[in-house]
């Protein structure tokens, strides 16, 4: 019930704008302000000070109370102003495997010529990312979003908020940007080896994952596979980094829907195919994919793997594009 109410409220706040095409600039009609917990207690304090001043006819008490009231009002205006005109310039949501948190990369921009301190952005119900934007500048930031099932998903609702300057008032706004990200099927853990090939090449079976040697960490680069991201390091508050693997070279192979046991359902088959594709790629093997209604000729490299995983992700899913 409560969840439902909240949902409806957020829908009302977005007022049918979602999903919005970028860039999105925050106008004053979509910024909301409310007192925070400390803000409410500040209000009560002012009330108590007012009553004390009235009772003891403390002229200076009135003066102090009213100055603080003015400061409270100003902090509301400032909080609102801190969001006003902030632009979500661009964003990207990298593909991940089902069950892994998604990472959004956003670029926020400030054009009004005043710095925007103490901002934080969060995907509803997940940990916020704090940042600030210098005057007339852009700021890129990454943000974790909850894991989702296989498919192509919009990034969902983002909440940008600020408690600047005194933490008495929170101003916030919702974005629901038209940024979409793919979720690949989760690769099956300990999947059996792909059946031996009738393919053109002299493929040899991929060793059960032990040919994959962890080599080193390097800074994250756009296009890196989410599976290679050093999530553990990120969770410890470290920088986004990618695990680099040294792998052995291999031959050529066909990964086929019909090679999966009939006992498996669609998702399980896709998971197995995904695991196979990753193994083949790690083994630097040329491989092709055959799904009902779709066939990808053998190839290798990051672009090829992406194409394969994408068709696995979108298999049987209505395309939103």
């Amino acid at each position: 019930m409560r969840q439902n109410l909240r949902e409806r409220m957020q829908r009302w706040m977005l007022r049918g704008r979602a999903p919005e095409r970028l860039p999105v600039t925050l106008g004053q009609r979509r910024i909301y302000v409310l007192p925070t917990g400390p803000g409410l207690s500040f209000g009560l304090l002012l009330l108590a000070m007012l009553v004390a001043s009235l009772n003891y006819t403390l002229s200076l008490g009135f003066a102090l109370t009213f100055v603080l009231a003015g400061v409270g009002h100003l902090s509301m205006v400032r909080a609102h102003r801190n969001l006003l005109g902030v632009t979500l310039q661009s964003g990207r949501c990298d593909a991940v495997f089902a069950g892994e948190p998604r990472i959004l990369l956003l670029v926020m921009q400030e054009q009004a010529g005043r710095g925007r301190p103490s901002l934080s952005i969060m995907h509803t119900e997940s940990a916020p990312t704090s940042f600030s934007i210098p005057a007339k500048a852009s700021q890129s930031l990454s943000l974790a979003a909850p894991a989702l099932p296989r498919g192509r998903h919009a990034v969902g609702r983002l909440r940008l908020e600020t408690r600047h300057p005194l933490g008495l008032i929170v101003a916030w706004s919702y974005f629901e940007p038209a940024i979409f990200g793919l979720v690949y099927p989760a690769p099956e853990a300990d999947a059996p080896s792909a059946p031996s090939q009738q393919g053109e090449g002299e493929g040899r079976p991929i060793p059960g994952g032990d040919g994959v040697l962890f080599d080193s960490l390097r800074p994250y680069r756009a296009g890196d596979r989410p599976r290679q991201i050093a999530w553990r390091q990120l969770a410890r508050g470290g920088a986004l980094a990618t695990k680099h693997f040294a792998a052995e070279a291999g031959g050529e192979q066909w990964l086929r829907w019909i090679d999966c046991p009939a006992t498996l359902d669609t998702e399980a088959r896709l998971s197995r195919l995904c695991a196979w594709a990753l193994r083949a790629d790690e083994a630097k093997q040329r491989f092709g994919l055959e799904l009902p209604g779709r066939r990808i000729p053998p190839g290798s490299g990051a672009a090829h793997l992406r194409e394969v995983l994408e068709s696995l992700a979108l298999y049987g899913v209505a395309d939103h594009a």
Partner: peptide, 8 residues
């Protein structure tokens, strides 16, 4: 505080 003074 300066900005709050007129309101005060």
């Amino acid at each position: 505080v300066g900005i709050a003074l007129p309101l005060a």
